[in-house]
C-alpha cells in the first residue's frame, strides 16, 4: 500500500506539488491524470524515491522510499522517455537489471522475449520508440517488481503496442497483485485499465475516485413535466449540470440510483429517461461541479 501525506515540492520559485495526499491499495491500477505541467511527473519521481519531497511523507508498505534499498528493489519507475545506457544491447541491459534487482527472473525474461519478439542482441538505441518502450516494460516486468510506476507509458504509441503493453501489465496485476501507477494526460488512454483515477491540477488533486463508484453515482437525466418543474425536486441530490431544451430538462445529478428514480417518479413527469454516461462525460460534469472546465485540464 502506498500512503502519501501532504507532499510539497518546489523547483526554484515554482511550487510544483502543494500538499498532495494519496492512498493506493495493493494490487490496484491507479490512473494519475492531469495536463502538462500539473505535477504528475514530479509526483511519480517523488514516489519512486528519485526526488526528495520538501515536505510531507511517503510510505510504501510503511517504509519511506527515498534512499531505502530494499524498498527500491521492489519498485521500478519507467519514465516517459525510457533510459538505456548508450550502445547497450537488450541482453547487456538485462544483465544490468539482473544484478541490480534481486527478484529478477531470467525465465520471465526469456518468456517475454517470445511474446515481444525482439532481438536481445540488438542495440536498444537502434530500436524505434515503440520498441524501446516495449524493452523498458520487458526489463521492468522481468525484475518482478511489486510496484510499477509509469510516466505517460502510452504516449505516442500505436494501438497494437499499446494493447500489448496493457495486457502484460494487467497480467501481472492479476497474477502477483502488482500495484501500478500510471500517469497520462489523456483519460481515454487509461480508463479501460484503471480502477482508481486522480486528477492533478496545479500541484493539487482536484478529484480522486474509484471508477465503479463514479459510474453508479452520477446520472444523466432527461425529464419533462406538464407544468413547471417542481422547485424542490433535486434538493436531496447534488446537481452538477442543468440545461433546458424547450420543456425538456437535462440534468446531471449525483446520488443513489434507486433514490433518484424514486424521487422523480413521485413527481409524475411526462418524460423520464436515465441515460448512460461515458467516463469522460462524468469527468466533465464532476469538474464543472468543482469549478473547472475539463478542456483546460485534460485533453
Amino acid at each position: 500500500m502506498i500512503h502519501v501525506q501532504e507532499i510539497g515540492k518546489t523547483f526554484g520559485k515554482k511550487q510544483v506539488l502543494k500538499g498532495v495526499n494519496l492512498t493506493i491499495n495493493k494490487g490496484s491500477i491507479y490512473g494519475l491524470l492531469g495536463s502538462n505541467g500539473a505535477g504528475k511527473t514530479t509526483l511519480l519521481k517523488v514516489l519512486s524515491g528519485i526526488f526528495k519531497q520538501d515536505t510531507g511523507s511517503i510510505n510504501i508498505d510503511q517504509t519511506p522510499v527515498f534512499e531505502h534499498v530494499p524498498m527500491k528493489q521492489r519498485l521500478i519507475f519507467i519514465p516517459d522517455q525510457p533510459y538505456f545506457f548508450s550502445h547497450y544491447t537488450v541482453k547487456q541491459m538485462a544483465e544490468f537489471y539482473a544484478e541490480i534487482y534481486p527478484e529478477w527472473s531470467q525465465q520471465r525474461f526469456l518468456h517475454l522475449q517470445q511474446i515481444l519478439n525482439l532481438d536481445i542482441n540488438a542495440k536498444v538505441h537502434q530500436f524505434s520508440k515503440g520498441m524501446q518502450r516495449q524493452v523498458s516494460f520487458w526489463l521492468a516486468l522481468s525484475a518482478m517488481p511489486d510496484y510499477l510506476i509509469l510516466d505517460e507509458p502510452f504516449d505516442g504509441l500505436d494501438a497494437v503496442v499499446r494493447k500489448k503493453i496493457k495486457n502484460l501489465m494487467i497480467n501481472d496485476v492479476a497474477e502477483r497483485a502488482m500495484t501500478v501507477i500510471v500517469s497520462s494526460h489523456n483519460l481515454r488512454e487509461v480508463e479501460d485499465i484503471c480502477d482508481h483515477i486522480g486528477i492533478l491540477h496545479h500541484g493539487q488533486f482536484i478529484l480522486e475516485k474509484e471508477l465503479d463508484d463514479l459510474k453508479s453515482d452520477i446520472h444523466k437525466i432527461q425529464v419533462a413535466f406538464k407544468h413547471d418543474i417542481p422547485e424542490t425536486l433535486f434538493d436531496a441530490f447534488t446537481v452538477l449540470h442543468r440545461e433546458e431544451r424547450g420543456s425538456v430538462h437535462l440534468i446531471i445529478v449525483k446520488g443513489d440510483q434507486d433514490q433518484v428514480d424514486q424521487v422523480i417518479e413521485q413527481a409524475n413527469p411526462l418524460v423520464y429517461d436515465r441515460l448512460p454516461l461515458t467516463l469522460e462525460e462524468i469527468f466533465v460534469y464532476e469538474m464543472e461541479g468543482v469549478g473547472y472546465a475539463i478542456e483546460n485540464i485534460l485533453v
Partner: peptide, 8 residues
C-alpha cells in the same frame, strides 16, 4: 533519474 531510481 534512472541511476537514482535504482536500489543503490
Amino acid at each position: 533519474d534512472f541511476i537514482h531510481s535504482l536500489p543503490i
